[in-house]
Each structure stands twice: as structure tokens, then as C-alpha cells.
Design a protein around this nucleic acid. Structure first.
Lengths: 219, 219
DNA sequence: ATATTATTCAAGTCATCGCTTGAGTGATGT
DNA sequence: ACATCACTCAAGCGATGACTTGAATAATAT
């Protein structure tokens, strides 16, 4: 009855991959990567029903990608460790490299503009110390409040046109959002480029920034 | 009818993860990582029927993890690029870190011995140039023939006891096999340790070695 | 104790997956 | 043209997955 250890191992690896094989769970992971949260908050953010989110979260926990702890009446989920984040990111990288459909979508987001290469986090840190950079955080206000890159300004996608006049046309603007699956930043950069600004995306979002031990400002 | 780009991207990422979520496909990837092969050879190696293997291979291709080309009457599959290998490996790492079941299986393979940390590929290369090392390749003969680390000796798991007397008890023995999902090497190291030899696994297998541009001997 | 809030469990439905079987297609050799 | 070989396609199956709904726990507040 005991199958070969080889087969048993592959089964386990498949469990990990399976956990990442549903868009709903990827959404949940992205949210959890912003910072630990309870089930209801996660369900809210992702648009899932609470029961459904709970089941997906348990699948993620069984796969070892997240851990949970009870805190009062809430159950708080968080990423197991940085490898989970790396795995999410590597999946994105492979998809971007090899899937034409992904390329098409990203091109659509760029809206005709020719998006420059993203800025590395190291380079941004360097530029920050020189003071020669403007940082925009395009996540929802509550996530911004939970933590953001020092000096970043929180802006909604829809407000770009409104705040554009207050931006310096000479200083480069670096835009970031959630992390591996960040998408608003692509759009914001496209808008800014069209308006004649000098804008680039940050490579990775806040979770990666924090993971590298860089300074994060709360509230 | 057009869903949001965000959702569309997550769908695509999920496709990639889904491709890795079946043991049969992981087996196929492991084989393909040894070197490109036709459908029938892959089906043979993995014990799948040809039709079934063909379908799994197409799933892998749709996910962008492998590519295929026609060569005469055969269709040859190969890994898209090194990122595919990295992805396979990262899944293993996450599983080993977080899943108790995996730990249990690996401990079982070690058969009571306390397996030392694997040797890095860089260290092995260094040791090779010094000539202070014995290398064992524990893959099937045909895979060994397709390419192996120079100086490695091809040994079957079952033949260890027989060839053990021919091994130097003082020189360290480095054992490797297929790659991310290598398992024989664990067992062989355990056997050698029990016999009183000084043995360690190589971190990664032949695919990773080749990927780093290190020398590989064919035939 | 009872009520409230946060989460999980259980049952049911519809879709998808993994595998098998048998037919179909494409390139090569006689 | 015909046979052969290597692979893919199509149909069908039992099993698993994603989501909904409504009931069951678990911890706190009244």
C-alpha cells in the first residue's frame, strides 16, 4: 500500500504547485504579502465570500505557503517565509517570459507607451539617499497606512491627472504597488509618460522591499 | 465580456502553477531536464502511456514551461529555459521547508543516518581541480551516457554494496543524480555512510550543473 | 447564560482534471 | 500506393475542484 518515496515526494511538490494554481488563491497571497490579516479582511479585499476565502486559505496553509494563528476571535494569516514570495514572483517571471497572452496584457496596460525597464530596489535606495527622486505608492490607502516606503506619496490611479501638476517635471518619478502581481504601477507609469513625465516602475513592491530589510514607514 | 487585466494576468499565472500541480508532469519535467527527448522516450521513462504523456506534455507547453519541435517523425520536447528549472527547484525548497510530510520522507530515505549538508556545485568544481574527490552518478546508464560530470562513475543504487570495496575509504565521495527531484543520491549517501565512507550529496543534479555552463561529458 | 462576532465545517452543484481507449494525422521507408 | 512509426485528437469515465448555502464552533462581550 505504501507507494514509492519518489512518488510520495512528487505528490507533495504537486500540492505546493496546486495551491498556486487558482487565481483566487494568488489574490489572497498577494494580499497576505502586504501584511498579515484576518479572514474577513482578506475576503473583503479580494471580493470572495468569507467561507470561500476561508477554504482557499486552508488550502494555502496545507501547502505550507502561509501560516495562521488565532488572535482573539480572529484568525490571522501570514506568509510562511520569504520563499513564498520568491515563488510567487518566479511564477510571474516564467509567465511573462513564455506566455504570449501575458505579454499582450502587459502591453495593453502600457497603453502604447514604451515602458522603460523597472528600477531595482537597490538603485531606488541609492537615489533616495541622494534625494533625487519622487516616489508614488499606488495602493489603496489602508495598505499604504500599514506600511510604505519612506517619502512615498499615496495616490489613487484615478487621481493621477489631478495631482500631476503638483509633480516636478524634472525629477524622475518611481512608482510601485503591491508586489509580484502589481499592476496599477504599470498603468500609472503609462499615464505619467504620456503626460511628459519621466517615470519608471519599481521592480517588486512593498513586500519585497520590506523583505530585504529596508526601511518601511507605518501609518 | 472582457474581464479586468488583473484577473486575466492572474489566470495566466495560475496556468503556469497548474502545469506543475500533477506528479506526472513533474516527472516529465525532471526527465526533460536531463536533456531533450521525444514523447515515446519520455512516456517510457515515466511509465505513462504515450497518449497520456502527450497530453501532459501539451499542458506543459501551453504553460510555457517546455517547447517542442518536430524532427522527422518525432516531436522533441525541451525545457523553455533555465527559469523552468529554477521554478521546479523553488517548489521543492518550499515543500521541504514547510511540509512535515516531506521531511518525514527524506528522513526515511536517510535510513537513520544523519545526512550532512550537500556540497555546492562551486565547491565540487574546486575539489575536482584538486583531484581530491570521487564522484558517483546514480542515474540510469542511458542518462549517464547522454551527459555526466567529467570523472563521475555511473553506479546503480543496487550495485553500491558490490562496488563499495573499490572505493577509497579516505577520499570523500560526492553523489548526484537527476536534479531538483533527485532521490537516489539520498539513499546512496545513506548506504555509503553506513559502510563507513565519507559521502555527501551534490546540491542539484546534472541539469543545474550544465545550466551553470560547467563541463559535461557525453557518451 | 445569552448574544455577538469571526471563522470553519458540511452538503450540494457544476465544471474541470487525469486517465483510458480507439481513431486520426504526418513524416518516412519500401 | 502502402505500410510503419511517432504522435495527437476525441470521447468517455470516475475523481477532484471551486463556489454557494446554511449550520456549527470558538472566543469575547453583555
Amino acid at each position: 500500500m505504501s507507494i514509492s518515496p519518489k512518488a510520495a515526494l512528487l505528490e507533495e511538490y504537486a500540492v505546493v504547485a496546486h495551491a498556486l494554481s487558482a487565481p483566487a488563491r494568488l489574490m489572497l497571497l498577494e494580499q497576505i504579502a502586504q501584511g498579515e490579516r484576518g479572514v474577513e479582511a482578506l475576503a473583503d479585499k479580494t471580493g470572495l465570500t468569507v467561507a470561500n476565502a476561508s477554504q482557499h486559505l486552508q488550502a494555502l496553509r496545507r501547502a505550507g505557503l502561509v501560516t495562521s494563528r488565532r488572535e482573539g476571535k480572529s484568525v490571522i494569516y501570514r506568509l510562511s517565509d520569504a520563499k513564498t514570495l520568491a515563488l510567487m514572483d518566479l511564477i510571474r517571471v516564467v509567465a511573462e517570459r513564455n506566455l504570449a497572452q501575458v505579454d499582450r496584457i502587459l502591453r495593453g496596460l502600457a497603453d502604447g507607451t514604451d515602458a522603460p525597464e523597472p528600477v531595482s530596489r537597490g538603485e531606488l535606495a541609492q537615489r533616495m539617499s541622494e534625494g533625487s527622486v519622487n516616489i508614488l505608492d499606488v495602493r489603496p490607502a489602508d495598505e499604504f497606512a500599514m506600511g510604505h516606503i519612506p517619502g512615498a506619496r499615496n495616490v489613487m490611479l484615478g487621481d493621477i491627472d489631478r495631482i500631476a501638476p503638483t509633480l516636478s517635471p524634472r525629477t524622475e518619478i518611481i512608482v510601485y504597488c503591491r508586489g509580484p502581481y502589481c499592476i496599477y504601477a504599470h498603468q500609472v507609469v503609462a499615464v505619467l509618460l504620456k503626460l511628459g513625465f519621466n517615470a519608471r516602475r519599481l521592480d517588486g513592491g512593498l513586500p519585497e522591499w520590506r523583505e530585504e530589510g529596508r526601511r518601511v514607514l507605518a501609518s
